[in-house]
Amino acid sequence: MRLPARRIASTALCATLLAGITGPAAVAADSSRERTHAASRAPVPGADTVLAQTKSLANLGAVLTPATDLLNQALQNGQLTPDQAQKLVDAVKAAIAQVSAAAPAAPSLPVSPSLTKHGAAGEEGAAGEDGKAPKAKDLQGDALAALQKAVDALLAAVTSGDVSKVLPAAAAVVTGLVNFVAATVLGGGLPAPDLPGLPALPSLPVPAPSLPVPAPSLPVTTPALPTS
């Protein structure tokens, strides 16, 4: 059945008009979606502090996960083959190295001009012999170094053939992990916890700079007056 030419022309005209109406609207909708998508991917202004805190928390997981894997295998099996133990230990050491490399340098402590002038070298918070400000103590770095030593001791224990050595070595690793967590929480710039009923965490001790000791007064000798 053939459609009349007039109906075909009318249908084509309607399709053309519909395309002319919906075409720009569709393009505008696509452009709006693209702008919305681009805006949703823009960084949040002022988020640097929270991003740094998030990174500190991620570092905790990066070390805790392989370390707890090592502990689980050591405590559940007692002894491991050298290859098994080394693979687990290597994962912990790789995480420690990654976190250590990404850690910011310890900031310099302020130094009083009087301390720089009078010395008091070698004490934290006081000027060194070269007059430069000392570095703040790197608690997280110290904790990671101690943890690595504990992991090495556990490696020796799980491959020694003596199961009795495993438990104290594993306990030392757990202590090392707790020290790492505490150093990160207290010194990593994380916000203070606000859980109701939670005791306040202690703040890191800040050593007081030593004050210069005044030199003792020398005795003043009064010259004898001539006698007549």
Rank of each mutant, 00 (worst) to 15 (best):
V99I: 14
D69Y: 05
K117G: 01
G23K: 10
T116D: 10
P223C: 06
I21S: 11
L60P: 01
H37A: 13
A136P: 06
L144K: 00
P216Q: 12
P43V: 07
L57G: 08
L218N: 11
A121I: 04
V166Q: 05
R7G: 04
R2N: 12
L17V: 14
L198H: 11
T16M: 15
I96A: 13
A127E: 02
L177K: 08
K55Q: 14
P107G: 10
Q84S: 13
P223H: 06
P202F: 10
S40C: 00
T68P: 01
A28G: 06
R6K: 08
P45F: 03
R41N: 11
P66Y: 12
T68G: 04
L218R: 13
A106E: 07
G187D: 13
Q79W: 07
D90W: 00
A97Y: 02
A38Q: 11
L60K: 00
P207T: 00
G141W: 08
Q53Y: 00
L195H: 15
L225Y: 06
G189L: 05
A67E: 01
R6N: 08
A145E: 10
A62M: 09
P202V: 09
K165G: 10
P196S: 04
A94M: 04
P209C: 01
L80C: 10
G128R: 03
A58R: 15
V158M: 05
S203F: 09
A12W: 07
L51C: 02
V92H: 12
V151P: 07
P24A: 06
A97I: 05
L198V: 12
K137L: 11
G189Q: 08
L218S: 12
P168W: 08
P107I: 03
A91W: 00
I8R: 13
P66W: 10
T116V: 11
K137C: 10
H37K: 04
A157Y: 02
T65N: 12
Q86F: 07
A52K: 06
Q53N: 03
S10M: 09
T159P: 01
L190Y: 03
L115S: 14
V166P: 03
A182Q: 09
E123W: 14
K149D: 15
P193Q: 15
L64I: 12
Q140M: 14
V50H: 09
H118K: 06
S114L: 15
A182W: 11
L155D: 09
D48W: 00
D162W: 03
